[in-house]
């Protein structure tokens, strides 16, 4: 295994991801775990586990932290927002300008990337949970399904219930009433995924989205959401190899860049 020369740490609201890269920018080490309430301790522990990089004294190679908990790492490390990190990671993976959609647990982001990999514009969802991964988590849990299974149900349905309300609270009560009216769970699931896809598509259009579309973050694993987003925005979505690691990967690339500078 090549040596880790730079590290990216993405402390998200749901999962914490760490990536170590070699001098040519290839991922040589990675780890992902659910985010713990004591984020600072968790980050320190994970940073100490990186092979050949300092042990408990912390990494000796450059680190860039990103994500919700980025300010919790030692101040000697650089912090960069997940916007820049996701853009950097995805640009390096796909090597294309375009529009990156990142649907996370708390936030959805749309990032427009130029031909040099720079961020031209970005937009994020408003305060409420509608339009984020949280929305699907809540309704899937209500249906006693995992998010993945719930998405599979959506794709299996030729029918789709029209759900206009993406307020998490309203949608939950609307869903219960649709079930009571005898609608199939498959078509309700499809309707809910459609509602979320519309919301994100609207965010993308407001940010001035340009083709091709790319996706990163946990939401990229949701097959139904991906399919419906392609349908709403009328363009195919390209995925990097490891969508969920793109924030951490981008952070590592930025750390490497700084080390080289």
């Amino acid at each position: 295994m090549s040596t880790v020369v730079a590290i990216g740490a993405d402390a998200g609201s749901t999962t914490t991801k760490l990536v170590g890269i070699s001098h040519d920018g290839v991922i040589v080490w990675e780890t992902i775990e659910p985010t713990e309430p004591r984020m600072r301790e968790q980050l320190e522990r994970l940073l100490a586990t990186i092979p050949g990089s300092g042990g408990s004294a912390g990494p000796t190679v450059p680190v860039v932290a990103t994500g919700y908990g980025r300010n919790l790492v030692d101040t000697k490390h650089r912090r960069v927002t997940e916007i820049t990190c996701h853009a950097t990671g995805v640009y390096r993976s796909i090597r294309s300008s375009g529009t990156l959609i990142d649907i996370g647990g708390q936030d959805s982001k749309v990032i427009v990337i130029d031909a040099a990999g720079g961020v031209v514009n970005f937009a994020m969802n408003d305060k409420c949970a509608a339009g984020t991964g949280r929305f699907l988590e809540v309704v899937a849990a209500r249906m006693r399904e995992s998010v993945q299974d719930f998405a599979a149900l959506a794709l299996s349905s030729p029918e789709e219930v029209a759900i206009s309300n993406t307020c998490t609270v309203f949608a939950e009560s609307e869903m219960v009433s649709l079930l009571a009216q005898g609608h199939a769970i498959e078509s309700i699931s499809r309707g809910l995924h459609r509602a979320l896809a519309r919301r994100v598509a609207s965010l993308a259009r407001s940010a001035g989205a340009v083709a091709p579309l790319m996706m990163s973050g946990g939401g990229a694993h949701n097959v139904a959401l991906r399919a419906l987003l392609e349908n709403e925005l009328g363009a195919a979505i390209r995925l990097p190899a490891k969508p969920q690691l793109m924030g951490a990967y981008g952070a590592a690339l930025l750390a490497l860049r700084r080390a080289a500078a």
Binding site: E82, T84, G118, F122, D126, K127
Partner: peptide, 23 residues
């Protein structure tokens, strides 16, 4: 940035500001 003036700003607002400066 959209704010409710009686509440502390959300984490997301800091992220938006930092991302703007990064660009």
């Amino acid at each position: 940035l959209e704010v409710d003036i009686s509440e502390r700003p959300s984490h997301q607002i800091a992220t938006r500001i930092e991302a703007l400066l990064e660009t």
